[in-house]
Design a protein around this nucleic acid. Sequence first.
DNA 1: ATACATATTCTACACTGTAGAAATAGTGCC
DNA 2: GGCACTATTTCTACAGTGTAGAATATGTAT
Lengths: 195, 195
Amino acid sequence: MENIDKKRGRPRSDQAKLSKEILLSCANELLQGSGKVPSIRKIARKLDVDPMAIYHYFPSKSALLEGVTVRLMEGIYIPQSEDTWEEQLRFLCSSYLDLLKNYSGLLETFLSMSVKGPAQVFIARFNTIVAPLGLPEDDMKNSLDLLVDYLHGFALSIHCAPKKDSLTLDSLNGPLNFYIKALTANMIRSKIFIH
Amino acid sequence: MENIDKKRGRPRSDQAKLSKEILLSCANELLQGSGKVPSIRKIARKLDVDPMAIYHYFPSKSALLEGVTVRLMEGIYIPQSEDTWEEQLRFLCSSYLDLLKNYSGLLETFLSMSVKGPAQVFIARFNTIVAPLGLPEDDMKNSLDLLVDYLHGFALSIHCAPKKDSLTLDSLNGPLNFYIKALTANMIRSKIFIH
DNA sequence: ATACATATTCTACACTGTAGAAATAGTGCC
DNA sequence: GGCACTATTTCTACAGTGTAGAATATGTAT
């Protein structure tokens, strides 16, 4: 499998080995397979390449992980207008949590990223979903913060004390229902004040 | 400062060096000072002792960290009956968050601990505080889960993207107020159903 | 042909947790 | 006092981590 002696310099173009794409999807596979963040050396071994080659494509390990993260956000649930807002919110949350669960090693990367983190995508979709409720701006922001941090905390607890998948979804539903009830109550209250 | 050659075996009893106590408080100091979990070697250097000596008192690094954690929980706010339940809840949350903030490196230890984690203490105090509200059992559990995981997620976000202390407290208040409003609404609703 | 950019490997450093053995001191028993 | 056993420490070593810096080989433009 592994050529025991490799030539040192740039390879001939017909046998090019690496690319950002290849590195990202390799890191992705290893992450999903193990649930943990793979080491640079593990990625290199899997691609039969020297660890330092990776640094030609990414300036640091965390840059690579951010790359993986950016690609993952694209899979997050997009609100479908035929669903009720409660359904949309539920779908959004479980889709986001699914991502956080399968890639729980990335949680800290998610939160450390300066821009374009999945949290931003989540926020945008959340705002779309609850816009029709006509909540006061304050409630909007506060309820969003509450939900986002709740989901992160929940994901972290799964990461640290893993349970069965079914259990996981169940224990999301309770608090989420409570949360939706709270949103509803506030919606009603603010509508009463307006009319 | 450091004796360049130390004798190898057990020291004479008048110059005993280590103890669980000493290790715990040293780890505590380093944690609080840097915000990060210190390495075994750092602790050993600070105590001018061989790293492996630590393993005589704790079977693993994580056992040491759990030890630190257990000691810390004792400082968590105890509900004072002259305060309203809202005040009690606010104090409890900011006391818990203060701990999570100053020892954010311990967050994963908190959540991985099998028993006696600070989360347990938090849960007990929470239940005391909201007991007078007479919430249905389901709401009780769900609102607790929501709050605990929210606080953990919030602490994690501070850990990953640190901000000023004042900012920190402010961004807790909003969601917490929203949460308290939700609790109040549910309390009223359930009281209406009872009477 | 010569210079420069690109892509790769190699070597090395400073870390990490910790397993296993060696050394010394204390304690209890004969 | 001698002997076995335990307690407390240091030393050596292993396998792992991220990554800096240099050497090497290819491709490309002048």
